[in-house]
């Protein structure tokens, strides 16, 4: 799950901290805590590095590694995708998005994708239906389902 705030995860063998250049500070407390507890960690501020760099980094990790990602919506989702492909599960990562969420809501009537942030209701930009945002998520469409009510 993408969160508003991160929490320190206990009992991990190693932490991977990953932020974009604007959000590195948000992870400093956790880096500090990892150092105090003597837990191994890597810390990467990702700038221009290609996907293959991150892919190699994630693939070198052993079982029990735990990933923190912090940054803007596009950055967090890009890193998450690479991590999942490298074998990390959703339970092995925490993500924090700064700035607007750019979720997609699929209209159940016409299948149009609508950008949403935190709204509970929107009007479909294609067919005009009133849509209620749900938590039903399609990995294939990378989108949430919007229901119409009667």
């Amino acid at each position: 799950m993408i969160r508003k705030e991160l929490s320190f995860s206990k009992g991990k063998r190693k932490f991977l901290f990953c932020a974009d250049s604007t959000e590195e500070k948000s992870l400093h407390d956790f880096v500090h805590q990892a150092m105090e507890e003597g837990i191994q960690f890597d810390f990467h501020i990702v700038g221009e590095e290609p996907d293959s760099f991150l892919d190699m980094w994630f693939n070198q990790q052993k079982m029990g590694s735990y990933l923190y990602i912090s940054g803007g919506w596009d950055f967090v989702n890009r890193v998450k995708k690479i991590a999942l492909a490298a074998g990390f599960s959703h339970e092995e990562m925490q993500m924090k998005v700064t700035g607007p969420f750019k979720k997609k809501l699929i209209c159940c009537t016409c299948h149009a994708g609508n950008p949403i942030e935190d709204e509970a209701y929107i009007t479909c930009r294609n067919c005009g239906a009133e849509l209620e945002a749900s938590t039903h998520y399609s990995p294939r469409l990378e989108a949430y389902l919007g229901y119409v009510s009667i």
Partner: peptide
């Protein structure tokens, strides 16, 4: 329910609602 939306999902993802 919508096949278009649920296509590709795992069993638990489909039934999560």
């Amino acid at each position: 329910w919508s096949l278009y939306f649920d296509a590709g999902m795992s069993f638990k993802e489909i039934h999560s609602p």
